[in-house]
């Protein structure tokens, strides 16, 4: 990250005008907000027209939910990254957004600084794990019994688990790196690997865990 880098192009998708206005005024000086939309259809059209680096995406959206936007855009514009935002703390919403392809998840009470940090991180291709998301993911993988078929692919490695536990404990990536004597880049690699397992694993117990909670 250089000081001279261009401001990140951000597209806002939320059905609450008041919330969009709030985010816009908080972020206007720090990122470039290139457009906003209030439903799935206009979001897809707007993202195609503006091709932002990051889409701040509300999980609950008229016309199919945030998931529908990710599924429509991801195949044609793979470089557009999604950061899910929601007022909900429900595991279904959190894991559902990630499984659809979002690179991270934040609740709407997040501070401006944390939000800008998360946008930058997602724009750089990294994953953003809030403590809550880390907790849900640990819960999800804990549901998989050790020794299940293909467990190497389905399970978290001990190191990945350790990193997630530190995220859940409120550690930043920098603090995790210091605590585990690894580089920040390695922490990011572990977190991205977890994200990939979560998104790609459509087999076994994780999908059953998801199905039981109506996440597809």
């Amino acid at each position: 990250m250089t000081a001279m880098r261009e401001r990140t192009k951000v597209f806002l998708v939320d059905d609450h005008g008041l919330f969009r206005a709030g985010i816009r005024s908080e972020l206007a000086s720090r990122v470039a907000i290139v457009g906003e939309a209030s439903d799935v259809e206009s979001a897809i059209a707007g993202i195609r027209a503006t091709v932002p680096a990051v889409v701040l995406l509300d999980v609950h959206l008229p016309g199919g939910g945030g998931k529908a936007v990710v599924e429509a855009i991801a195949p044609e514009l793979p470089d557009v990254r999604f950061l899910a935002l929601s007022a909900s703390d429900a595991a279904d919403d959190v894991i559902g957004a990630i499984r659809a392809g979002a690179r991270g998840y934040l609740t709407k009470t997040v501070s401006s600084d944390d939000l800008v940090g998360a946008i930058t991180r997602v724009a750089d291709g990294d994953a953003v794990f809030s403590p809550r998301l880390a907790g849900f993911v640990l819960d999800a993988f804990a549901a998989i019994p050790v020794g299940a078929l293909d467990s190497e692919l389905a399970q978290l490695t001990p190191r990945e688990r350790e990193v997630l536990q530190h995220v859940a404990r409120g550690y930043t990536y920098r603090e995790i790196a210091a605590a585990l004597f690894i580089s920040i880049k390695t922490v990011e690699t572990h977190v991205s690997a977890v994200l990939r397992k979560l998104q790609l694993d459509n087999r076994h117990q994780l999908s059953r865990w998801a199905a039981e909670r109506n996440i597809s």
Binding site: P131, G135, L138, A142, Q165, A168, R169, G170, Y171
Partner: peptide, 20 residues
């Protein structure tokens, strides 16, 4: 702001309370 993380499994329960 303070973080509270707790985990329970077969071996036991662990709680972490962290502030900056």
């Amino acid at each position: 702001k303070v973080s509270l993380y707790a985990e329970v499994d077969a071996s036991g329960a662990r709680v972490f309370v962290r502030d900056r």
